[in-house]
Amino acid sequence: MNNFQYARANDVADAIRLLAADPGAKLIAGGTNLIDLMKENVERPTRLIDISRLPLRKVEGTADGSLRIGALVPNSDLAYHPLIEQRYPLLASAILAGASAQLRNMASVGGNLMQRTRCAYFYDTATPCNKRHPGSGCSAMDGLNRNHAILGTSAACIATNPSDMSVALAALDALVHIAGPSGERTIALTDFHRVPGDKPHVDTNLGTGEIITAIELPPPGFAQNYSYLKIRDRMSYAFALVSVAAALELDGNAISGARVALGGVAHKPWRSLEAEAALRGQAATPDHFSHAADLLLQGATARSHNGFKVELARRAIVRTLTQAANATPQSQAHKKIA
């Protein structure tokens, strides 16, 4: 770990001020990813600004029926919050599919959005990586890329976003509330994370000196017909090879609204409005799900070791939509796939 200064922010404005004062500074809340990366010398902040005590821990309903979640609500508290369990069980399920009970107790909602990729080359400072060291090259491209992205990749980077929570938030059309030197703004979660393009070292559209203050969930919670299915190399405590968040509004057997987001396949939670539009008005049947899967996976490109993800994702999409349609959401504890 590098040598850094430590400061505790008293309020959001203070955090923004401290950030502006030191271009090498970083915010720390739960710390579960940042400290990990600091121990690997991948992150080398000159100063840590501890925001963990800021009053951003509330989950509260708003006048328009949305739910506002403070950026510092721990992942586990959010997953087990009665309003989330009742109104947004898809989000609860996705959170519980990620990490471990201990890490979920530590990790904040805002920090989860800021998680960096688990690409092995990003973590290994002895190998080239455009995300860690822009311009040095991408070792994964022709290397060990079994875990890597098949969608939205660029010639510079094929890393994936490791978050489970973000996949559900993307499906739920969540908004990210941000405060910064020039005031407050809101970004759709689907616009929060970037595709790598030629700037893979930039993970998100969070601007310099900005801080996430809250996540907002709009009213449709899809509490009846949803499922989060995570496929991984062991039964728990592993990152997704592919994950799917599916949410449906059904009118009888007809789909009146559909959301599907993929994890483990791209630099950001992956959605396709085209696929969702194609589902609307259709019967909730496997062939329609299959067609949606094809649309979601349009343009998927594989490297030497991750070609299986295309077929795995296709099947997982169909399966998860089926679970959602049948109102048999995947349990994160009982491992038989419904």
Binding site: A120, Y121, A126, T127, D142, R234, M235, S236
Partner: peptide, 25 residues
């Protein structure tokens, strides 16, 4: 244990990516 033979380096030298069974397995 996975090695990148271009670098002669083990690329999953940790116990998050070198998988051993967890309780749920």
């Amino acid at each position: 244990t996975v090695m990148d033979h271009r670098f002669g380096r083990i690329m999953n030298a940790n116990i998050a990516e070198y998988h051993i069974p967890v309780n749920a397995d």
